[in-house]
Design a protein around this nucleic acid. Sequence first.
DNA 1: GTCTTTATGATACGCGCATCTCATAAATTT
DNA 2: AAATTTATGAGATGCGCGTATCATAAAGAC
Lengths: 213, 213
Amino acid sequence: MDVSRQQNESALRNERGPRARTRKLMLETATRLMQSGITPSVSEVAEAAEVSRATAYRYFPSQAALVHAVVDEALGPILDWRSEAPDARTRVADLLATAMPRIDEFEATFKAALKLTLDQWAQRQAGTLGNEPQLTRGHRVELLRQVTAPLDGKVSPEACEQLAQALSLVFGVEVLVVLKDIWGLSAERAQAVAEWAAAALVEAAIREARTAA
Amino acid sequence: MDVSRQQNESALRNERGPRARTRKLMLETATRLMQSGITPSVSEVAEAAEVSRATAYRYFPSQAALVHAVVDEALGPILDWRSEAPDARTRVADLLATAMPRIDEFEATFKAALKLTLDQWAQRQAGTLGNEPQLTRGHRVELLRQVTAPLDGKVSPEACEQLAQALSLVFGVEVLVVLKDIWGLSAERAQAVAEWAAAALVEAAIREARTAA
DNA sequence: GTCTTTATGATACGCGCATCTCATAAATTT
DNA sequence: AAATTTATGAGATGCGCGTATCATAAAGAC
């Protein structure tokens, strides 16, 4: 029973037929469960979606694959984000305004994803690397390069890179983990702090370039 | 067999006797395993330490308890950190110089701890809150209040608080996770980026207070 | 309509973690 | 030294995850 023979992974998403239907059902169920705070095992999704465990494992062979798929859905508008604003300050503010509420909305999902990357890192360290779906987590790099793009030429490439790296610290689930869970802030306050910090970093990079010139 | 009847938790640490000895052995074994990248189960520590599983579980009833104990050891010098430097810039640089190498050294341990806090958060959300040891993760707040202490009076309390919160984003395991794992930086580069970001944030807070006045 | 292909469900197995019980060994106390 | 408390080990049990097998039901081809 080789699935890819007749319907490959990408085709499965949007086409119809029994496979696409079941997959959609499972994904929706998994998303709902994760939103409620659970990081469901494949078996749990199977039960909640009222399909047999065997079937569930045919679509998502591991919890990692499951979370990966749900995260892809959750990322949605963040992946499509673009900015034509002329200055970096506006771009970073815009990015945070788009991404952070979405991340907060799917907080449980993104935290589960973060947990999985930590799992995979540990297994890699220990040498026990199953060939899992390999959670991506590289979106930040691309997005932040867009943010710092207006600074090309005005700021040295090294400084630009450093700024992007620093910005990646104030943008992501980790921000919520720290500000909400440790400091007890609301989602709004957390976003405000992140925006302030991001603006300060951009400002500093620009200022340094100015004094260096 | 009520342990606390004769030797309570705190007494166990430094006193001697068979219990303290076994506990120490297990802790050392667990630390060694975690440094090698594994996040060991209680059973694994038991085997590596050559004690029976039953004994192991008497000391550490769960993996969470185990990690918690190892983290306490790993924190070591970070918890003792103090600074008498007169200005916040120096203090934050000093804190990062102390803490980041230590965190990097015990990277696997701190990542495991982060994973556990995510687990606990998820279980809390789902309502299934076992009464686990409840990982602390609040050290950052105290340390950063010390960092921003020189700004009291010079900067409004709100701004001071916000600065501390922003600084907490560039100080901790999360920084390593993002900069090393996503960007592929070395530990040294990661620390340099964190230091630059921290300095920029402090600078921004001070500058804002100046212009506001 | 028959026949093939494909999807699903029921069931069973192995594995590792966590817990419990009970017997033995070690220690402390008197 | 004897008695009592305390620590340990060996084994059994239950539970959940992941996998494999086989039989049935649904969909598509002719």
